[in-house]
Design a protein around this nucleic acid. Sequence first.
DNA 1: CCGTATCCACATCGATACTG
DNA 2: CAGTATCGATGTGGATACGG
Lengths: 148, 148
Amino acid sequence: MSLQDTSQHSNCTAMSDVLNRIGDKWSVMVVGMLGRQGTLRFNELKRLINGVSQRMLTLTLRNLERDGLVTRTIYPEVPPRVEYALTELGKTLQQPISALWDWSSENHGSIMDARAIYDARSAAVAEDAPRKVAYVGSEGRLAGARSI
Amino acid sequence: MSLQDTSQHSNCTAMSDVLNRIGDKWSVMVVGMLGRQGTLRFNELKRLINGVSQRMLTLTLRNLERDGLVTRTIYPEVPPRVEYALTELGKTLQQPISALWDWSSENHGSIMDARAIYDARSAAVAEDAPRKVAYVGSEGRLAGARSI
DNA sequence: CCGTATCCACATCGATACTG
DNA sequence: CAGTATCGATGTGGATACGG
């Protein structure tokens, strides 16, 4: 709503909106899996995607279905069978997702390295920090300013 | 290529890890802005990215810096000046991000349409619910056929 | 087998106030 | 200008239990 006109690029809203839906890891995983494997049942997806809870998988699939990225086909059998697959729109999303996926596996190492360096430096700085609060007394400015 | 190994858990964790950092909208916005505009100061970024709070921009920039995607340059002046820019690694991230960005602006309309259809059906089903699904008409072309 | 519903610990984020 | 600190509302996600 208040996200209008971020610079001249009016499609920032679109980007935000899309990112809010497909920007979480479960959605990316599901699209990736369905893109590679084709059609999958609920529990197949659950097994393939490590760590996802039933609840989150259901929610993710519902959102993807709602956004027209995934089809949900129910076979009225016993036991029930439900199959998921990408729509045409969902298939087009595969390319940008694969690009991001490739970038990730390619650069994950660099990121980990950068983090290690950054954290090492932060730790070093933190060790010097206490010096600047060595002594707090004798400043008369507290005299009348005791406002609790 | 790498997409073939995506069934391996090692790649999934890399993807998860990367997505957890760069998968939120503020990071994407920042990288997008810095990619387009080059070097920007803190408040320039804040103005360009509509809706971001000072706190979130700071946190986002710190994370991006930690991951080696953004440089932070402090000029010891009064008033202080701090400039942010993409690193080489950050620049390589631009491609997958703009791919996603392009996809978003291109397909946001389709998604909104799909949502409208889905919501309309859900509402209809909810109204029939007490009577146990009498008729599931309204053949929608969910699966594809998206005009360009 | 495929969900939905409930509870709750936990993280996230915005608002606000303050500093150098 | 460019942060840091704190707090409270809100959201998120896992565990669990149950229903079709």
